[in-house]
């Protein structure tokens, strides 16, 4: 029963969450189709060789409902094609990990929960898909959901406008900046309709490094 309640809660949550399905609006081709293609090619070339990626992040949420920005920091570990660990360290430890179709979640000092299927928890699935797409530069996935414009060619900055009308209600656009030279993701900015924003900065990235065993267990 607790599971049902949890699921129902998540269903409620998802109403407010940006829907991930693409809807039939014309794609924003951007100022220069050739420039966009070039930028995409560079990102694709960079990520094509990525097997693992790990690093730290700093999240800053500027919300109207908060008097001051909420800053949190943590680490993430990602292994293609389907493993991710997202750990919030400050101010409150929490996180989740995904290994294929299975996921675990934890809060505070509690240990990870029993494994559950990611499909069972649509919110986790949505978050995981987003993080995977940003960190691994999955432009195909992103293009299905957003119309993408190249704002700046070098370092590359992309502007992503949601295709889904539901998501459009809440999210104005996303802005993803890539690191100069390496073309790895550097900053993700989520700008909401009401002016709220969330900035996630990735740093100390280690590409194809040896990941500690048991990180995804």
């Amino acid at each position: 029963m607790r599971t049902i309640i949890a699921i129902l809660m998540l269903c409620c949550i998802l109403v407010a969450a940006p829907a991930a399905s693409a809807e039939g609006e014309p794609a924003d081709q951007g100022p220069s189709a050739a420039g966009k293609a070039g930028a995409f090619a560079r990102i694709s070339k960079t990520v094509s060789g990525v097997k693992t990626i790990a690093g730290a992040f700093r999240q800053e949420r500027r919300l109207a409902m908060l008097a001051r920005p909420a800053v949190s920091t943590g680490r993430f570990y990602c292994m293609k094609p389907d493993k991710l660990r997202w750990e919030l360290i400050n101010p409150e430890p929490s996180g989740f990990l995904v290994n294929g179709d299975l996921a675990k979640q934890w809060k505070g000092k509690e240990g990870p929960s029993d494994a559950f299927e990611t499909k069972q928890n649509p919110l986790i699935k949505l978050i995981v898909d987003q993080i995977f797409a940003w960190t691994t530069g999955d432009l195909k996935w992103l293009e299905q959901r957003y119309s993408i414009n190249v704002v700046q060619d070098d370092p590359i900055i992309l502007k992503l406008v949601p295709r889904s009308t539901k998501e459009k209600k809440y999210v104005d656009h996303l802005r993803i900046s890539f690191e100069a030279g390496t073309n790895y993701v550097h900053v993700v900015n989520i700008l909401e309709k009401g002016g709220d924003s969330t900035r996630i900065e990735f740093f100390d990235l280690v590409i194809n490094g040896q990941l500690q065993q048991g990180l995804f267990e």
């Binding site: 949550i13 998802l14 407010a16 969450a17 940006p18 999240q59 949420r61 919300l63 409902m65 908060l66 909420a70 949190s72 997202w86 919030l88 101010p91 409150e92 929490s94 989740f96 809060k107 919110l123 986790i124 949505l126 978050i127 993080i131 989520i190 969330t198």
Partner: peptide, 9 residues
């Protein structure tokens, strides 16, 4: 709000 789920909740 500060956790990833806060992006949507």
């Amino acid at each position: 709000l500060t956790g990833p789920e806060g992006w949507f909740m």
